[in-house]
Design a binder for these strands. Structure first.
Length: 260
DNA sequence: ATGGCGCCGAACCGGCGA
């Protein structure tokens, strides 16, 4: 089972990249963030023509998440239960016995912003919900744009970023709390080259200069992590014309449906 | 690296992202 997360920064603009990527890589599930479109404008026909189903939760201009899959998604749920939020940031579905949770964590803007407080509260609500969700779905994968670089090695220049949003201690603590409920950072299950990032600023030639952060992650539950065989970032789409500023992250899981 | 890019909607700019 091949599962992927990709913040596309406008599905309308990035649709050709997404369709090409699906055609080349044929994942079982592709979680998308920052659709930036309303449900009525979701490009369902194009995605179905590529051989994929889609469930989605969109809104105008901002946010929006989707799960594309070869097989129909089961038990689809939107948002964090019990946490009122106008912003469309969470979508969950079961595929092949695995609970797939697609998240677009708030950016936070800056550590002295109200948006930063919202981010921390949101992460707390997410963690509480997932702890509960894990009791119902031991095989769970949490994929998305976390807007957190968990450690200094996930940052091109830790000194510059120290204490800044995406790298601050409370955000990193929130990330650790997610791990503590029984999740594992699939990327760190394997040896990785230095300077492996998933996001590069559009400005200042950041991508060419390899000035990035690793903020998109695939966390796997205790029951799923032992079956993970790889996790990697594909930087090829970042080289295209009009790219997303994020790259897709892929995890492969060798699990037997029959054993579930 | 931090003005510097790119997306959006309603306009030719401001809000937001990271």
């Amino acid at each position: 089972m091949k599962i992927v997360t990709w913040n596309v920064n406008s599905l309308k603009v990035r649709l050709p990249h997404v369709l090409d990527w699906l055609n080349i890589h044929q994942p079982d599930a592709l979680c998308l963030q920052e659709l930036k479109l309303e449900d009525q404008n979701f490009p369902r026909a194009e995605i179905e023509a590529a051989g994929y189903r889609a469930v989605f939760s969109g809104q105008k201009t901002y946010n929006g998440v989707a799960i594309l899959s070869r097989e129909p998604a089961q038990d689809v749920s939107m948002g964090i239960p019990g946490y009122a939020d106008e912003q469309k940031r969470v979508l969950a579905a079961t595929l092949d016995g695995v609970r797939i949770v697609c998240v677009y964590v708030p950016n936070g803007q800056s550590v002295d912003s109200d948006k930063y407080q919202y981010k921390l509260q949101w992460l707390e609500a997410l963690t509480a919900w997932l702890k509960d969700e894990l009791t119902r779905h031991p095989k769970l994968a949490l994929l998305g744009d976390y807007n957190i670089a968990p450690e200094d090695r996930d940052v091109h220049d830790p000194k510059t970023w120290e204490g800044q949003v995406l790298c601050s201690a409370p955000e990193r603590e929130a990330f650790r709390k997610l791990l503590q409920i029984g999740l594992h950072d699939s990327f760190r299950l394997f040896p990785q080259a230095d300077g492996a990032f998933t996001w590069w600023d559009y400005r200042m030639n950041a991508f060419r200069r390899k000035l990035g952060l690793r903020i998109d992650h695939i966390l796997l539950s205790d029951a799923l992590a032992p079956d993970c065989t790889s996790c990697s970032v594909d930087i090829e789409p970042r080289k295209l014309e009009r790219p997303s500023d994020h790259a897709p992250v892929t995890a492969e899981i060798s699990h037997a449906k029959e054993s579930y």
